[in-house]
Amino acid sequence: MISKERKFWIYETMNKIRYFELKALKLFEENKLRGSVHLYAGEEAVAAGVCSQLRDEDYITSTHRGHGHCIAKGAELDKAMAELMGKVTGYCKGRSGSMHIADFTKGNLGANAIVGGGIPIATGAALAAKLQKTDKVAVSFFGDGASNEGTFHESLNLASVWKLPIIFVCENNGFGISVPVSQSTSVENISDRAVGYGMPGVTVDGNDVFAVYEAFEEALKRAKAGDGPTLIECKTYRTLGHWTGDPQTYRDKKVVEMWRDTKDPIQLFKKRLVEAGDFTEEELDKVEEDAKIEADAAAEFAINSPNPDPSDVMDDVFYEC
């Protein structure tokens, strides 16, 4: 059972992510934002469903498609948008752009532009949590494509033999850029890979908040009980291009439209909330309106922020002792 308060948080977070992404897309199209920008719109149920159960002291690692995870782990939209625009007020002082947002104060060990790069790092955070005898957990978000990198396989094995408090959350959105999962991946369900590493593997509908929530709740219990890791595969779909500007010639528009129009995770969740009598349609519309306003304000903040000073470019290479 998800508490009403938590449901509200999830709905709000999903909307924040959605409108942040749509704003980023608009800024990119207006040439106000550059670089490699990978949008998460349409996959919000995963980040929100998972992060609603984490505390600031729990860790996550994220991916090149990281805005959603970062926002769900507590990132402020202003600072995130400023980072996308390379401004000094951004999370990483404008040094990182879209693909590396991190906020260590919120347990976000970073988006990661190297596919599969974050998985061993989350594993290490889980190791620290165990060695320090805390009840912290780590979550690694990664894509279907990343599950074909060596880092995925090495990390699952290591986390399993060491019984680490980690949950591996695979976002199977159907593609690694232009390559469909069926062409690149040896198993029907990526969760099947858990068997090889001696841990439970589950596949859930990644556009259904409740399904994601319940699978994660179970995995979290396991991790906290000292029983080790779980692999959760969330089947979702990337309804936008791989990156802003992707021609998308590799897939059928009709399938994309079907997912966008009938399986939108926010719409599905909203319907359930209204049907259950948790909130009225008006209450939820207000959340959506507020998210739009917040995204617009974040863009304003980012646009009006200064660029970093090039004379500081050598700072932070090493920790100054």
Binding site: G86, K87, S96, G97, N307, P310
Partner: peptide
């Protein structure tokens, strides 16, 4: 320069 390549274009050019 002896630092990673930054994202911001002015910083990138400065490196």
């Amino acid at each position: 320069k002896a630092c990673p390549l930054p994202f911001n274009i002015e910083l990138e050019n400065a490196v």
